[in-house]
Design a binder for these strands. Structure first.
Lengths: 144, 144
DNA sequence: CGGTATCCTCAATGATACTG
DNA sequence: CAGTATCATTGAGGATACCG
């Protein structure tokens, strides 16, 4: 998602002057969870609750995520107060992450979305397939 | 959101070969609703249900959306089978949009997310404010 | 171990102009 | 009215290398 403005304006929560909805909570939330790895990180942490997971463990449980993106994602979640970060001051640093209460409270809505997705993505795929077979010609001469 | 690959791979529902989860339904759904205007369009249409809305009406009810993005968003929703498009063959064309049953079924989960957002975004903002005041210095010398 | 620093690519979105 | 066609910008995310 894209909260900030590619070609428009958009402000921090406090600024005003926007012509369009400036701080619509829903859009802001979707900009966060719509970010490629956030919801997966929350899910993984939620399944582990109330335990904690270390950086490397999280990475193992989120197939395909890069070290950079896990770092970025976690930093964002911590900043938002959805995840708590605990550093154990041992030799090779051990950092633990866990959902805060706020983060945990997001799991319900997120799970509902997951259930919907698992239940209905096949229908969406079917609809797309129908569109693909019944229009490629029109598309060719009106698009491209 | 970004379904397709900025720097990686990603395939249509049918292709395989991905190292990471290829067709995780949840990610695919988030890639759709995470797109800047989709959830707002669904919401507006849901509030109108079971009525229909015309292109221009939709545009009026979604402040800030451009003609192009409304068009793109609606095309995508129709293709996914979440929205039905009805063209009245009159002189200046009149096109009506309404949620399908599938689209309507997504409203529940989406509303739950909206409620969560409206209920908790203030906490997130607060958490961000805390982060801003307690670290700007560290950030300055480790980021930037 | 847990990150951070760079560099690079590409899809999402905006702005603008044109059309059946 | 309801789009489509272009063009430009931006930021998410990947690859890679280095660090306390």
């Amino acid at each position: 998602m894209t909260t900030s403005s590619p070609g428009g304006r958009d402000r921090r929560p406090g600024e005003r002057g926007d012509l369009l909805d400036p701080r619509c909570p829903t859009r802001r939330l979707l900009d966060r969870i719509g970010t490629k790895w956030t919801s997966m990180a929350v899910k993984v942490l939620a399944e582990e609750a109330p335990g904690e997971l270390r950086f490397a463990e999280l990475r193992r449980r989120i197939p395909g995520i890069s070290q950079k993106m896990l770092s970025v994602t976690l930093r964002s979640l911590v900043r938002d107060g959805l995840v708590a970060r605990r550093v154990e001051p041992v030799v090779p640093p051990a950092v633990h992450y866990r959902l805060t209460e706020l983060g945990l409270s997001l799991e319900g809505p997120l799970r509902a979305l997951r259930v919907w997705a698992e239940t209905h993505m096949a229908e969406i795929d079917h609809s797309n397939r129908l569109a693909d077979e019944s229009s490629p010609d029109q598309r060719v001469d009106r698009m491209r």
